[in-house]
Amino acid sequence: MLYRVEGLVIRSTDYGEGNKIITLLTPTYGKQGVVVRGAKKLKSRYGALAQLFTYGDFSYYKSGTLGNLNSGEILESFHELREGLEGPAYAAYAAELTDRAINDDEAAAYLFHQLKACQTALAEGKDPQIVLRAYEMKIVNAAGYAPLLDECVSCGKSQGPFRFSAIAGGALCLQCRHRDPSALELEETVWKLLRVFSALDLRRLGNITVRESSKRQLQLAMRRWMDTHLNLVLKSRNFLDQWEKYGDMLGERMKRPEPSAKPEEAGDGTV
């Protein structure tokens, strides 16, 4: 049977001498595996279609588990996400997370549009840490593990302050925090962002400026949540963790004045 779909390439692996198998996230059929024959050859007609992050129009025949590409057209190459280190690191994490965390039947049209919006935001240069935290919330929602953020998961109390507990399922009030001594104490800004990310359509994501301390808490909260409920080991995450740690170290070195500099020469800094 011949299928024609829009799709985002979320995985691309070598197959045989000169072929590739790509995994597409589509709005109509969820995740689809398609063989692109000759994709590794220099003069391949469809080699570019098999590149990670590509958004295209794909036509393929399918009678079993895998389809065979018949024709295709690139709609958006997202070449920015394959340049440098930062773009590929964050985009690869989003793609691998989608591939590993979501079953074929859970990959609906909404998630397709969220991933496309995520890639667009990264390509436009929006804060990648904020973009990824928002997209992680889309993933846990799609997988059926959304945290309860507006009331205590234990007693139902709607008035904070709360602690964030991955084990308990979300917010814990102070009277119930004994249920998880490791629950996180988060800034009120972080609570607001978690609630916004849970309801937000990423296609409407603007430029958000967030303090570094808040970004670190967001990362910790989402990582602890996903480790508890999804329990995935992702190659891209290991690299990203190293990259973000290096970025923090680099930022500290850039902000730290030289020992010989006078106060007025070091600048006024940012609090």
Results as ranks from 00 to 15, higher is better:
Y3A: 06
V9T: 05
K20W: 01
G33M: 09
T54D: 05
F58Y: 05
Y60D: 02
S63D: 14
N68G: 07
L69Q: 12
E73G: 09
E73F: 09
I74E: 09
S77Y: 10
F78D: 04
L85F: 14
G87H: 04
A91Y: 00
A91M: 04
Y93G: 02
E96T: 04
L97S: 10
T98R: 01
T98V: 03
R100S: 10
N103G: 15
N103K: 15
E106H: 07
E106R: 08
A108E: 15
C118L: 07
T120N: 12
A123Q: 00
G125S: 01
A134H: 10
Y135G: 09
I139S: 07
N141F: 11
A143V: 00
A143T: 01
A146T: 08
C155L: 03
G156E: 08
S158T: 13
F162Y: 06
R163A: 11
G169T: 02
L184K: 04
E185G: 11
L186Y: 10
E187W: 13
W191L: 02
A199Y: 10
L200C: 06
T209W: 11
E212V: 12
E212K: 07
S213F: 14
Q217Y: 03
Q219C: 13
Q219I: 09
M222W: 07
R223T: 12
T228E: 15
H229A: 08
F239P: 07
L240N: 06
L240T: 03
D248N: 08
M254F: 15
K255H: 14
A261W: 13
P263K: 06
E265K: 00
A266P: 00
A266T: 01
D268W: 14
T270M: 11
